[in-house]
Amino acid sequence: MIVDQNEEPCVVGFLTRDGAALIPPGCVASLYVDEGNRVVERGELVAVDATGNPVQAISSTLGNEQPLTGPIDPRRVLDHLTTAVYQLDATEVGAALAAKLAGGDIFEGRFSYRGGFGDSAMFLLQNDAGFFALIGSPTNFEFVSRDLPAAEDDENDEAIDDDDELDFGMM
């Protein structure tokens, strides 16, 4: 916490480079504009992939039954960067699934909290503390061979300890 000489807490603001404006927190609007500086409402935006083809919107998976695959190799979890964790309160678990989870097996499904244009991998597991769902995105790390060039600049150098907090969801 940053305080002034009276130990009163201070807040972060933004000062424009020309010194013309001091912007308090919450006073910046994020808008989509086209090349003519016309605002395009979020509801009018169209999501496209790298080839320019429209991406289909998906619904939230909350409250909707999702298929599970597995048991999976635990390395599949290692291939993903965990971005959210949910502690689950199991109201009903099938006997077969319960037995496998209790035995240490891990299952995989898909998860999207709000819906939108992409979902994430979801890993269902159980330990001594209960049931958990780990939500993650692929790391896409590639194997390194002697032929490949040695290390390059880390484009995501800030990512090890950035300001993004892990979304603990229900925790």
């Binding site: 912007i23 910046v28 609007a29 808008l31 504009v33 090349e35 169209v46 496209v48 992939d49």
Partner: peptide, 23 residues
Amino acid sequence: ERWSYIGPDSQPVANERFIKATE
């Protein structure tokens, strides 16, 4: 980058930040 946005007429759009209020 899994997707990007375009406008309803397929025009390119960019996300910009604007001043909403000042101190």
